[in-house]
Write a protein that binds this DNA or RNA. Structure first.
Lengths: 151, 151
DNA sequence: GCTACAAATGCAACAAGGTTGCGTTTACTG
DNA sequence: CAGTAAACGCAACCTTGTTGCATTTGTAGC
Protein backbone atom coordinates (compact mmCIF):
# COMPACT_ATOMS: atom_id res chain seq x y z
CA UNK A 1 0.00 0.00 0.00
CA UNK A 2 1.71 3.20 1.19
CA UNK A 3 0.01 4.67 -1.81
CA UNK A 4 -2.43 7.10 -0.24
CA UNK A 5 -0.93 10.56 0.12
CA UNK A 6 -1.31 12.53 3.30
CA UNK A 7 -3.93 14.87 1.87
CA UNK A 8 -6.59 14.01 -0.71
CA UNK A 9 -5.02 16.23 -3.32
CA UNK A 10 -5.84 14.24 -6.44
CA UNK A 11 -9.41 15.47 -6.59
CA UNK A 12 -10.68 15.13 -10.13
CA UNK A 13 -13.63 17.43 -9.56
CA UNK A 14 -11.42 20.24 -8.29
CA UNK A 15 -9.29 20.07 -11.39
CA UNK A 16 -12.28 19.98 -13.69
CA UNK A 17 -13.88 22.96 -12.03
CA UNK A 18 -10.68 24.94 -12.08
CA UNK A 19 -10.12 24.07 -15.73
CA UNK A 20 -13.63 25.26 -16.51
CA UNK A 21 -12.59 28.69 -15.33
CA UNK A 22 -14.96 29.11 -12.43
CA UNK A 23 -14.36 29.39 -8.72
CA UNK A 24 -13.56 26.17 -6.89
CA UNK A 25 -15.97 26.13 -3.98
CA UNK A 26 -16.75 23.37 -1.54
CA UNK A 27 -20.31 23.20 -2.78
CA UNK A 28 -19.37 22.75 -6.41
CA UNK A 29 -16.85 20.06 -5.57
CA UNK A 30 -19.34 18.14 -3.47
CA UNK A 31 -22.00 18.32 -6.16
CA UNK A 32 -19.70 17.37 -9.01
CA UNK A 33 -18.33 14.48 -6.95
CA UNK A 34 -21.84 13.26 -6.37
CA UNK A 35 -22.67 13.54 -10.06
CA UNK A 36 -19.60 11.52 -10.94
CA UNK A 37 -20.43 8.88 -8.34
CA UNK A 38 -24.00 8.53 -9.60
CA UNK A 39 -24.78 5.96 -12.23
CA UNK A 40 -27.98 7.69 -13.28
CA UNK A 41 -28.96 11.30 -13.79
CA UNK A 42 -30.05 12.76 -10.46
CA UNK A 43 -32.93 15.08 -9.73
CA UNK A 44 -32.45 18.04 -7.45
CA UNK A 45 -34.27 16.22 -4.65
CA UNK A 46 -32.14 13.09 -5.00
CA UNK A 47 -28.99 15.16 -5.00
CA UNK A 48 -30.13 16.94 -1.86
CA UNK A 49 -30.63 13.61 -0.11
CA UNK A 50 -27.21 12.35 -1.09
CA UNK A 51 -25.54 15.48 0.14
CA UNK A 52 -27.43 15.28 3.41
CA UNK A 53 -26.03 11.83 4.09
CA UNK A 54 -22.50 13.21 4.32
CA UNK A 55 -20.99 14.75 7.39
CA UNK A 56 -20.90 18.28 6.06
CA UNK A 57 -23.71 20.70 6.84
CA UNK A 58 -26.68 20.61 4.50
CA UNK A 59 -26.51 22.97 1.59
CA UNK A 60 -29.18 25.54 0.89
CA UNK A 61 -31.82 24.48 -1.60
CA UNK A 62 -31.32 27.52 -3.78
CA UNK A 63 -27.57 27.20 -3.68
CA UNK A 64 -27.85 23.65 -4.96
CA UNK A 65 -30.02 24.84 -7.84
CA UNK A 66 -27.47 27.50 -8.65
CA UNK A 67 -24.54 25.15 -8.40
CA UNK A 68 -26.22 22.68 -10.74
CA UNK A 69 -26.99 25.42 -13.21
CA UNK A 70 -23.47 26.76 -13.02
CA UNK A 71 -22.04 23.32 -13.72
CA UNK A 72 -24.32 23.05 -16.72
CA UNK A 73 -23.33 26.53 -17.86
CA UNK A 74 -19.63 25.71 -17.81
CA UNK A 75 -20.13 22.39 -19.53
CA UNK A 76 -19.40 20.07 -16.63
CA UNK A 77 -22.95 18.78 -16.25
CA UNK A 78 -25.96 18.08 -18.41
CA UNK A 79 -29.56 18.92 -17.70
CA UNK A 80 -32.54 16.98 -19.05
CA UNK A 81 -36.20 16.48 -18.27
CA UNK A 82 -37.51 13.12 -17.10
CA UNK A 83 -40.93 11.66 -17.89
CA UNK A 84 -42.48 13.37 -14.86
CA UNK A 85 -41.25 16.76 -15.95
CA UNK A 86 -38.47 17.01 -13.38
CA UNK A 87 -34.98 18.17 -14.30
CA UNK A 88 -32.19 15.65 -13.94
CA UNK A 89 -28.48 16.33 -13.96
CA UNK A 90 -25.54 14.17 -14.92
CA UNK A 91 -21.80 14.63 -15.17
CA UNK A 92 -20.95 15.81 -18.66
CA UNK A 93 -18.21 13.27 -19.27
CA UNK A 94 -20.60 10.41 -18.76
CA UNK A 95 -22.70 11.46 -21.71
CA UNK A 96 -20.40 13.04 -24.21
CA UNK A 97 -20.24 9.62 -25.77
CA UNK A 98 -24.03 9.59 -26.14
CA UNK A 99 -24.22 12.83 -28.05
CA UNK A 100 -23.61 11.47 -31.47
CA UNK A 101 -25.49 8.30 -32.00
CA UNK A 102 -28.94 6.84 -32.12
CA UNK A 103 -30.83 5.44 -29.14
CA UNK A 104 -33.43 2.74 -28.92
CA UNK A 105 -35.78 3.18 -25.98
CA UNK A 106 -37.79 0.17 -24.91
CA UNK A 107 -41.32 1.18 -24.02
CA UNK A 108 -41.71 -1.92 -21.86
CA UNK A 109 -38.68 -1.96 -19.61
CA UNK A 110 -37.55 1.63 -20.13
CA UNK A 111 -34.10 0.50 -21.11
CA UNK A 112 -31.92 2.61 -23.39
CA UNK A 113 -29.80 0.89 -26.03
CA UNK A 114 -27.12 2.59 -28.06
CA UNK A 115 -27.19 1.76 -31.75
CA UNK A 116 -24.09 1.94 -33.86
CA UNK A 117 -25.71 4.14 -36.48
CA UNK A 118 -24.91 7.83 -36.81
CA UNK A 119 -27.78 10.30 -36.60
CA UNK A 120 -28.93 11.66 -39.95
CA UNK A 121 -28.19 15.26 -40.94
CA UNK A 122 -30.76 17.78 -39.69
CA UNK A 123 -33.33 19.05 -42.19
CA UNK A 124 -33.46 22.70 -43.10
CA UNK A 125 -35.03 24.85 -40.40
CA UNK A 126 -37.43 27.76 -40.85
CA UNK A 127 -35.90 31.23 -40.67
CA UNK A 128 -34.95 32.28 -37.16
CA UNK A 129 -34.79 28.81 -35.69
CA UNK A 130 -31.52 27.83 -34.01
CA UNK A 131 -30.54 24.21 -33.55
CA UNK A 132 -28.76 23.09 -30.40
CA UNK A 133 -29.33 19.41 -30.14
CA UNK A 134 -30.48 16.53 -32.21
CA UNK A 135 -32.14 13.39 -30.94
CA UNK A 136 -33.00 10.46 -33.11
CA UNK A 137 -34.86 8.06 -30.85
CA UNK A 138 -36.42 4.79 -31.85
CA UNK A 139 -39.09 3.47 -29.54
CA UNK A 140 -40.35 -0.05 -29.40
CA UNK A 141 -39.74 -3.33 -27.67
CA UNK A 142 -36.27 -4.62 -26.98
CA UNK A 143 -35.22 -8.21 -27.63
CA UNK A 144 -35.60 -9.23 -24.01
CA UNK A 145 -39.10 -7.85 -23.59
CA UNK A 146 -40.17 -9.18 -26.98
CA UNK A 147 -39.33 -12.75 -26.08
CA UNK A 148 -40.85 -12.38 -22.63
CA UNK A 149 -44.08 -11.10 -24.20
CA UNK A 150 -44.28 -14.11 -26.48
CA UNK A 151 -44.72 -16.39 -23.46
CA UNK B 1 -78.52 19.07 -48.78
CA UNK B 2 -81.33 18.70 -46.25
CA UNK B 3 -78.75 16.68 -44.41
CA UNK B 4 -78.02 18.85 -41.41
CA UNK B 5 -80.40 18.08 -38.54
CA UNK B 6 -81.99 20.82 -36.52
CA UNK B 7 -79.64 20.44 -33.57
CA UNK B 8 -75.81 20.26 -33.83
CA UNK B 9 -75.79 16.56 -33.23
CA UNK B 10 -72.86 15.63 -35.40
CA UNK B 11 -70.32 16.46 -32.72
CA UNK B 12 -67.30 14.28 -33.18
CA UNK B 13 -66.03 14.86 -29.68
CA UNK B 14 -69.32 13.85 -28.11
CA UNK B 15 -69.33 10.58 -29.99
CA UNK B 16 -65.73 9.87 -29.12
CA UNK B 17 -66.31 10.55 -25.45
CA UNK B 18 -69.44 8.43 -25.36
CA UNK B 19 -67.69 5.63 -27.20
CA UNK B 20 -64.91 5.77 -24.64
CA UNK B 21 -67.46 4.85 -22.00
CA UNK B 22 -67.24 7.92 -19.81
CA UNK B 23 -69.78 10.64 -19.08
CA UNK B 24 -70.31 13.23 -21.76
CA UNK B 25 -69.95 16.54 -19.97
CA UNK B 26 -69.72 20.01 -21.41
CA UNK B 27 -66.22 20.41 -20.04
CA UNK B 28 -64.90 17.28 -21.67
CA UNK B 29 -66.47 18.19 -25.00
CA UNK B 30 -64.98 21.68 -24.93
CA UNK B 31 -61.53 20.39 -24.06
CA UNK B 32 -61.54 17.61 -26.62
CA UNK B 33 -62.78 20.04 -29.27
CA UNK B 34 -59.91 22.36 -28.42
CA UNK B 35 -57.42 19.52 -28.60
CA UNK B 36 -58.70 18.55 -32.02
CA UNK B 37 -58.58 22.13 -33.24
CA UNK B 38 -54.99 22.59 -32.03
CA UNK B 39 -52.15 21.93 -34.41
CA UNK B 40 -49.65 21.47 -31.60
CA UNK B 41 -49.75 19.79 -28.23
CA UNK B 42 -51.11 22.26 -25.70
CA UNK B 43 -49.98 22.92 -22.18
CA UNK B 44 -52.50 23.33 -19.40
CA UNK B 45 -51.97 27.10 -19.45
CA UNK B 46 -52.44 27.35 -23.22
CA UNK B 47 -55.59 25.29 -23.02
CA UNK B 48 -56.94 27.53 -20.28
CA UNK B 49 -56.38 30.60 -22.44
CA UNK B 50 -58.14 29.09 -25.41
CA UNK B 51 -61.13 28.12 -23.34
CA UNK B 52 -61.30 31.60 -21.85
CA UNK B 53 -61.62 33.11 -25.31
CA UNK B 54 -64.96 31.40 -25.85
CA UNK B 55 -68.26 32.68 -24.61
CA UNK B 56 -68.79 30.03 -21.97
CA UNK B 57 -67.77 30.68 -18.40
CA UNK B 58 -64.19 29.90 -17.55
CA UNK B 59 -63.52 26.43 -16.29
CA UNK B 60 -61.91 25.72 -12.94
CA UNK B 61 -58.16 25.13 -13.07
CA UNK B 62 -58.41 21.84 -11.22
CA UNK B 63 -61.32 20.66 -13.32
CA UNK B 64 -59.26 21.23 -16.44
CA UNK B 65 -56.44 19.16 -14.98
CA UNK B 66 -58.89 16.40 -14.18
CA UNK B 67 -60.56 16.53 -17.57
CA UNK B 68 -57.22 16.30 -19.33
CA UNK B 69 -56.19 13.36 -17.18
CA UNK B 70 -59.50 11.63 -17.75
CA UNK B 71 -59.15 12.03 -21.52
CA UNK B 72 -55.70 10.52 -21.29
CA UNK B 73 -56.98 7.70 -19.09
CA UNK B 74 -59.66 6.73 -21.62
CA UNK B 75 -57.29 6.95 -24.55
CA UNK B 76 -58.66 10.07 -26.21
CA UNK B 77 -55.64 12.24 -25.46
CA UNK B 78 -51.92 11.88 -25.08
CA UNK B 79 -49.73 13.40 -22.41
CA UNK B 80 -46.07 14.23 -22.86
CA UNK B 81 -43.44 16.41 -21.24
CA UNK B 82 -41.92 19.36 -23.07
CA UNK B 83 -38.35 20.58 -22.72
CA UNK B 84 -39.21 22.87 -19.82
CA UNK B 85 -40.78 20.04 -17.90
CA UNK B 86 -44.38 21.07 -18.56
CA UNK B 87 -47.02 18.54 -19.55
CA UNK B 88 -48.55 18.92 -22.98
CA UNK B 89 -51.68 17.23 -24.26
CA UNK B 90 -52.80 16.32 -27.74
CA UNK B 91 -55.78 14.55 -29.24
CA UNK B 92 -55.00 10.88 -29.58
CA UNK B 93 -56.00 10.71 -33.24
CA UNK B 94 -53.83 13.66 -34.14
CA UNK B 95 -50.78 11.85 -32.94
CA UNK B 96 -50.95 9.31 -35.70
CA UNK B 97 -50.27 11.97 -38.27
CA UNK B 98 -47.41 13.28 -36.16
CA UNK B 99 -45.78 9.92 -36.11
CA UNK B 100 -44.18 10.40 -39.43
CA UNK B 101 -42.48 13.72 -39.48
CA UNK B 102 -39.86 15.73 -37.68
CA UNK B 103 -40.43 17.96 -34.65
CA UNK B 104 -38.56 20.98 -33.45
CA UNK B 105 -38.78 21.54 -29.71
CA UNK B 106 -37.94 24.97 -28.36
CA UNK B 107 -35.93 24.75 -25.15
CA UNK B 108 -37.03 28.27 -24.18
CA UNK B 109 -40.80 28.30 -24.53
CA UNK B 110 -41.36 24.56 -24.77
CA UNK B 111 -43.26 24.89 -28.02
CA UNK B 112 -43.40 22.05 -30.51
CA UNK B 113 -43.18 22.81 -34.22
CA UNK B 114 -43.81 20.39 -37.03
CA UNK B 115 -41.25 20.47 -39.81
CA UNK B 116 -42.08 19.51 -43.32
CA UNK B 117 -39.20 17.08 -43.57
CA UNK B 118 -39.74 13.36 -43.48
CA UNK B 119 -37.88 11.39 -40.86
CA UNK B 120 -34.90 9.44 -42.12
CA UNK B 121 -35.18 5.69 -42.51
CA UNK B 122 -34.48 3.78 -39.31
CA UNK B 123 -31.13 2.07 -39.04
CA UNK B 124 -30.98 -1.66 -38.84
CA UNK B 125 -31.99 -3.00 -35.44
CA UNK B 126 -30.35 -5.82 -33.54
CA UNK B 127 -32.08 -9.19 -33.70
CA UNK B 128 -35.28 -9.38 -31.66
CA UNK B 129 -35.89 -5.63 -31.47
CA UNK B 130 -39.27 -4.41 -32.66
CA UNK B 131 -39.78 -0.83 -33.75
CA UNK B 132 -43.01 0.95 -32.87
CA UNK B 133 -42.26 4.60 -33.13
CA UNK B 134 -39.63 6.83 -34.51
CA UNK B 135 -38.85 10.26 -33.11
CA UNK B 136 -36.47 12.62 -34.80
CA UNK B 137 -36.43 15.63 -32.52
CA UNK B 138 -34.46 18.78 -33.02
CA UNK B 139 -33.95 20.94 -29.97
CA UNK B 140 -33.01 24.57 -29.92
CA UNK B 141 -34.52 28.03 -29.94
CA UNK B 142 -37.54 28.91 -32.05
CA UNK B 143 -37.78 32.05 -34.13
CA UNK B 144 -39.92 33.87 -31.57
CA UNK B 145 -37.64 33.17 -28.63
CA UNK B 146 -34.52 33.89 -30.71
CA UNK B 147 -35.65 37.39 -31.61
CA UNK B 148 -36.84 38.05 -28.09
CA UNK B 149 -33.43 37.03 -26.76
CA UNK B 150 -31.63 39.36 -29.14
CA UNK B 151 -33.28 42.44 -27.61
C1' DG C 1 0.40 37.13 3.97
C1' DC C 2 -2.92 41.07 3.08
C1' DT C 3 -6.41 43.59 0.46
C1' DA C 4 -10.08 44.27 -2.69
C1' DC C 5 -13.47 42.83 -5.64
C1' DA C 6 -16.31 39.78 -8.02
C1' DA C 7 -18.42 35.57 -7.52
C1' DA C 8 -20.80 32.41 -4.62
C1' DT C 9 -23.78 31.58 -0.73
C1' DG C 10 -27.84 31.78 2.57
C1' DC C 11 -32.24 33.42 3.49
C1' DA C 12 -36.83 34.94 2.52
C1' DA C 13 -40.20 35.43 -0.50
C1' DC C 14 -42.40 34.40 -4.71
C1' DA C 15 -44.25 31.95 -8.93
C1' DA C 16 -45.76 28.17 -11.89
C1' DG C 17 -47.35 23.68 -12.31
C1' DG C 18 -49.78 20.13 -10.31
C1' DT C 19 -52.48 17.45 -6.54
C1' DT C 20 -55.78 16.38 -2.61
C1' DG C 21 -60.01 16.71 0.13
C1' DC C 22 -64.67 17.74 0.39
C1' DG C 23 -69.20 19.40 -0.34
C1' DT C 24 -72.31 20.31 -4.35
C1' DT C 25 -74.02 19.60 -8.98
C1' DT C 26 -74.90 16.82 -13.02
C1' DA C 27 -75.18 12.92 -16.35
C1' DC C 28 -76.75 8.56 -16.80
C1' DT C 29 -79.50 4.17 -15.11
C1' DG C 30 -83.63 2.00 -14.06
C1' DC D 1 -88.55 11.00 -12.40
C1' DA D 2 -85.83 9.41 -8.46
C1' DG D 3 -81.23 7.48 -7.07
C1' DT D 4 -76.43 7.17 -7.65
C1' DA D 5 -71.86 7.45 -9.11
C1' DA D 6 -69.18 10.49 -11.54
C1' DA D 7 -67.81 15.11 -12.44
C1' DC D 8 -67.35 19.75 -10.86
C1' DG D 9 -65.93 24.02 -8.09
C1' DC D 10 -63.47 25.73 -4.38
C1' DA D 11 -59.87 26.10 -1.05
C1' DA D 12 -55.84 24.62 0.48
C1' DC D 13 -51.56 22.43 -0.15
C1' DC D 14 -47.25 20.38 -2.28
C1' DT D 15 -43.24 20.25 -5.33
C1' DT D 16 -40.20 22.32 -8.35
C1' DG D 17 -37.83 26.16 -9.66
C1' DT D 18 -36.68 31.39 -9.57
C1' DT D 19 -35.58 36.29 -7.90
C1' DG D 20 -33.73 39.93 -4.79
C1' DC D 21 -30.66 41.21 -1.46
C1' DA D 22 -27.39 41.11 2.28
C1' DT D 23 -23.32 38.40 3.69
C1' DT D 24 -19.43 35.37 3.01
C1' DT D 25 -15.65 33.42 0.37
C1' DG D 26 -12.33 32.37 -3.47
C1' DT D 27 -8.86 34.35 -6.06
C1' DA D 28 -5.96 37.86 -8.38
C1' DG D 29 -2.74 41.44 -7.48
C1' DC D 30 0.18 43.43 -4.50
Amino acid sequence: MARAPAAPVADVSVDLIRAAGVKVTRGRVRVLDALHAARQPLSHAEMEMRLDEGSEPAMDRVTLYRILDSLVACGLALKAVDTRGVFRFSAAGAQRQHANHVHFRCTDCGGVFCLKAEPPPPPRLPRGFRLNELAFDLRGTCAGCSSREAV
